[in-house]
Nucleic acid binder design. Structure first.
Length: 487
RNA sequence: GGCGCUAUCGUCUAGGGGUUAGGACGUGAGAUUCUCAAUCUCAAAACCCGGGUUCGAUUCCCGGUAGCGCUACCA
């Protein structure tokens, strides 16, 4: 029987960009798997591309991870601080004959970078330089010769000596068996001539060193995995489990990018998505629970249900509309006080100095009307503002009626409000019977009041709104509306 | 171009040799109602194409097509 070692997974972003939706989903899957198995979740920053990596992006990634609630157990480790490990690993590989020094200047082993959309160079892979790997002049160099040239100060990269025949494959936990011919794998670089490792060396050396047992990452690495397997084998290390997850695409079915608008998770934070809703949505993109019937799944359920088997093989389009729906579900499910507490900083940041208890009165009235926390600013502005912004007097006119009717309704309302208890039941009764007395339909009476008091035709229920607004404000706004009506 | 992977409503997906192919978002209609929202009901909406295997394929196999990925001294 196999002794199952404790699960260790990692999320290893490169700080050459912010934490995007795809990365967040990968991080989430790793986190869920770690929590599900009681394993360890490691965060590792792959910052070996010094040119493009920035401290700012590192911060952004950490902020995003924290907002998402994806707490890590180890790290963050930084590859830039572990260069010795990679150099030593490369050295081992050279010494064991699995890798060699390459003195070529930059490009002869790989294709020149193709311009975006340009037709690939026909037959290049063949002319590709050294199809038969033993044609490679550097690969054929003796170790002594290579060392001599290095000693003379010649710069060299270290390349992996890929077997000339046979094939390399692995069994992916999501995609099943994958196999590719070794002739398709070029002698890829492990260590650049400046001594900095490339991705392939970095990940493998680290995953071995950190004893990672399961590698859950984007399917864009599927084709790279055979290369990495070759390194594991050359090092005599056991292969971890690979689980590649399908990519997330934009609405146009191309890879999600800045072009598609908000792709940084911090943008979603700022827009007022709830992290728990975001997690729920992301978890269901490319994964589905065994009993895939409900969509709202709590963190606890997610953790207990998560498994590699439920991961799908096809790419998924990111559907913002559904995310918003889900966020609205979470907002409605939140207790009023809690929601109100989350709304408060947003309202204050927008410049309103409102008391927490006042906001708690407003919250239940807008809770079902907002999809994002930020929507509070537009949904509740008339509660927050002292003065209503100007609105078109024509809005005061009820569906079946005219300005004169609106005017009459408002004047009557002013009288009623002046002498009615300011709670919504009393207001409801009083206003309703006033309408009846005047021979008006409820809507004909209420709509002008709504507009007078909120400045718009759609609002939370009128009587609750009046109650929260209070007598003074309500009366002032109604009077102002009356004044605006040309007589 | 080469290699690899994938293919169920517009989108996310369930399912699986015989099903009225299920759910969710969105869309449309209706109900409720002081407006909006929420809620409820109903509706339209899918197995990429062609071969094979089979009594029977959407499901299994092969081919095609399409999409995506990889093909860097990026990750």
């Amino acid at each position: 029987m196999t002794q199952t070692s404790p699960v260790r997974v990692r999320f290893a972003p490169s700080p050459t960009g912010y934490l995007h939706v795809g990365g967040a989903r990968t991080a989430l899957f790793n986190w869920l798997y770690a929590r599900h198995t009681g394993g360890t979740f490691i965060l590792r920053i792959e910052d070996t591309d010094f040119e493009r990596s920035t401290q700012e992006m590192v911060e952004g990634i950490l902020v995003g991870m924290r907002w998402l609630g994806l707490d890590w157990d180890e790290g963050p480790y930084f590859q830039s601080q572990r260069l010795e490990l990679y150099r030593a690993t490369a050295k081992r590989l050279v010494q064991s004959g699995h890798a060699y020094d390459c003195f070529c200047s930059k490009q002869p082993h790989g294709s020149p970078p193709l311009a975006e959309g340009a037709p690939p160079l026909a037959g290049f892979a063949k002319a590709g330089v050294f199809t038969a790997k033993d044609d490679d002049p550097c690969r054929c160099l003796s170790r002594e010769e290579a060392e001599r040239r290095r000693a003379q100060g010649e710069a060299a990269a270290v390349r992996f000596a890929v077997p000339e025949s046979g094939s390399t494959g692995f069994d992916d936990a999501v995609f099943g068996p994958i196999e590719i011919s070794n002739t398709e794998i070029e002698d890829f670089v492990l260590l650049r001539s400046d001594g900095v490792p490339t991705y392939h060396l970095g990940v493998v050396a680290d995953d071995i060193d950190m004893q990672v047992t399961h590698i859950i990452r984007g399917a864009d690495h599927l084709s790279n995995t055979p290369k990495q397997r070759l390194i594991y084998e050359a090092l005599g290390e056991p292969l971890p489990v690979f689980a590649h997850v399908p990519l997330i695409l934009g609405p146009d079915k191309t890879r999600l990018s800045k072009r598609h608008g908000a792709t940084s998770v911090t943008a979603y934070k700022d827009e007022g998505f709830l992290p728990e809703a975001f997690r729920n949505y992301l978890a269901l993109l490319g994964w589905s629970p065994p009993d895939a019937t409900k969509e709202i799944v709590s963190d606890q359920e997610l953790i207990s249900l998560f498994s590699l088997e439920g991961i799908s093989k096809s790419n998924a389009v990111f559907d913002r509309t559904k995310l918003e729906w889900m966020n609205a579900e979470y907002i409605r499910a939140l207790p009023v006080d809690e929601l109100s507490d989350r709304l408060l900083p947003i309202v204050r940041a927008a410049g309103y100095s409102i008391e927490a208890c006042k906001l708690r009165q407003i919250t239940p009235l807008i809770r079902e009307r907002i999809k994002l926390l930020r929507d509070v600013l537009t949904a509740a502005d008339f509660f927050l503002l002292n003065e209503l912004p100007p609105y078109d007097t024509a809005l005061l006119i009820p569906q079946k009626g005219d300005l004169a009717m609106a005017s009459k309704a408002l004047e009557r309302a002013r009288e009623v409000l002046a002498q009615t208890d300011f709670n919504h039941q009393a207001l409801d009764e009083a206003l309703r019977s006033a309408a009846k007395e005047m021979g008006l339909k409820p809507g004909q009476m209420f709509q002008p009041i709504r507009v007078a008091v909120t400045g718009r035709t759609a609002s939370p229920p009128l009587f609750e709104t009046l109650e929260v607004l209070g007598r003074e404000t309500s009366l002032a706004r109604i009077s102002r509306a009356i004044d605006k009506i040309p007589s």
